Amino acid sequence: MNFTRKFNVLITEEISYSKLIQSLPKLEEFNVCYISDWSKVDSDYKYFSIRDESTDKLLGAFCLFFSKRKGMLHLSNPPFFQNCGLWIGSQGKNLYYQNSHQKKVLKSIAEFLSTYNWVNISFPPECIDMQPFYWEDFVCKVRYTYRLKTTEFRELNNASKGLKSSIKALKSKGISIHQTFDSQANYLLESSSLQGRKKVESDYFKKLLEVLKALETFSVVKAEVNQSAGVSCGVRVGDTFVYLFGGAEKTEGLSLGTASLYELISNELEANLQLIDFEGSMIPGVERYFRSFGAELTPFYNVTKEPAVLGVKKALNL
């Protein structure tokens, strides 16, 4: 299948991970999409470049996942990732030229995506210009993550009283901390992350974990007491630590999930980190938990487009 599209002088085309990183090594420190070659997990992970045909200069990059739903092609973020990792190169300090450059690249992406019938993609919080997608009749919605400066985490000045009390209590409960990814940790992560997921997504998740475990920037912490445990894992991306997955067994009066996450982040503070990204959730209970750390609510945009046949089925309640 040919994924190349040309709009004016900009060309959007599929590119191999190795060629993309060779052209722009700093992408590895920009977004989770670029810390490894996810096409090794499955060939349906595809990387795209946006370049100027006249100069052959790389202007942007992103990662998409191509799958089949209801027998139709569906484009989305890579499974279990918050966004498509869109990167757009800078264009000087003049605000007019910056905005014009970004508008041109985003217009090219919107026109590229408009050639497909079923799309559901989110963008990094830094990308706020959704006008080109409105112009192409995409539905644009706001979603949220939580981000916390590492200086705030050290003091937890803005954290909830409940979280502060929990962390204080954890230090006196004789909890053992391990930085090993054993079978119990694996079970807890899968049990928490795969609830309600299809088998194919379960397979992707297991392959994803195998790739992550091989990365030097990946870390995991298991908190354990009386044979019960909680586990949290994440990965360093440049100056940001991204929380990925967690899971915990219920213990009366004790949050082993909080213990593992607190220790996980604490262990990373020496790595010259500036920011912690909780990869926020739209699930109320999860949102409330991330908010308790005193993190800043950060919006990001999602664009969708559905096949006309789905609209008919919804209207007929089929």
Results as ranks from 00 to 15, higher is better:
Met72Val: 03
Ser67Leu: 10
Ile128Asp: 01
Ser114Asp: 14
Phe80Arg: 11
Leu75Arg: 07
Pro78Asp: 04
Phe81Gln: 11
Ser76Asp: 13
Tyr144Cys: 10
Val105Gln: 01
Met130Asn: 02
Gly89His: 14
Gln102Lys: 10
Phe81Met: 14
Glu126Gly: 07
Gln91Gly: 00
Trp118Gly: 00
Cys127Tyr: 03
Ile121His: 04
Tyr144Ile: 13
Val119Tyr: 05
Phe81Tyr: 12
Val105Lys: 04
Asp137Met: 00
Arg143Met: 03
Phe123Cys: 11
Leu113His: 02
Lys104His: 06
Tyr144Lys: 00
Arg147Leu: 15
Gln82Leu: 12
Glu111Ile: 03
Cys140Gln: 03
Ile128Glu: 13
Asn120Ala: 08
Phe123Lys: 03
Trp135Asp: 13
Cys140Val: 15
Tyr134Lys: 01
Gln91Pro: 00
Val142Cys: 06
Phe133Ala: 06
Val105His: 05
Trp87Asn: 08
Val142Thr: 15
Ser114Trp: 00
Leu73His: 05
Leu75Cys: 11
Phe80Ser: 12
Ser122Phe: 11
Cys127Leu: 11
Glu126Arg: 08
Lys68Tyr: 08
Asp137Glu: 12
Glu126Gln: 09
Leu86Asp: 07
Ile128Asn: 01
Leu75His: 09
Pro125Asp: 10
Leu73Glu: 14
Tyr146Thr: 08
Gly71Ser: 12
Lys70Asn: 15
Lys104Ser: 14
Glu126His: 01
Glu136Lys: 15
Cys84Asn: 15
Tyr116Gln: 07
Thr115Met: 08
Phe65Glu: 10
Val139Asp: 12
Cys140His: 02
Trp135Pro: 02
Asp129Lys: 06
Phe138Glu: 01
Trp135Gln: 07
Asn94Gln: 13
Asn83Met: 10
Ser90Pro: 13
Tyr96Gln: 06
Met72Asn: 06
Lys70Trp: 09
Leu106Tyr: 02
Asp137Asn: 15
Arg143Trp: 02
Thr150Cys: 13
Asn120Gln: 11
Tyr116Cys: 01
Cys127Asn: 10
Asn83Pro: 04
Ser76Arg: 10
Pro78Phe: 05
Leu95Asp: 04
Glu111Cys: 01
Leu106Arg: 07
Pro124Val: 08
Pro125Glu: 15
Gly85Ala: 09
Tyr146Cys: 06
Phe138Leu: 07
Pro125Lys: 08
Val105Cys: 10
Ser108Thr: 14
Gln131Phe: 06
Lys107Asn: 05
Asn77Trp: 09
Cys127Ser: 13
His74Gly: 03
Trp135Leu: 09
Tyr96Gly: 05
Lys141Arg: 12
Tyr144Thr: 15
Leu86Met: 05
Lys104Ala: 12
Lys104Arg: 12
Ser122Gln: 12
Ile109Asp: 01
Cys84Gln: 04
Leu95Glu: 06
Ile128Ser: 03
His101Met: 04
Ser122Val: 10
Asn120Cys: 03
Trp135Glu: 12
Tyr96Glu: 08
Gly71Trp: 09
Leu73Asn: 10
Arg69Ile: 14
Asp129Trp: 04
Ile121Ser: 11
Cys127Ala: 06
Cys127Lys: 08
Leu73Val: 11
Pro132Trp: 13
Thr150Gln: 04
Arg69Met: 13
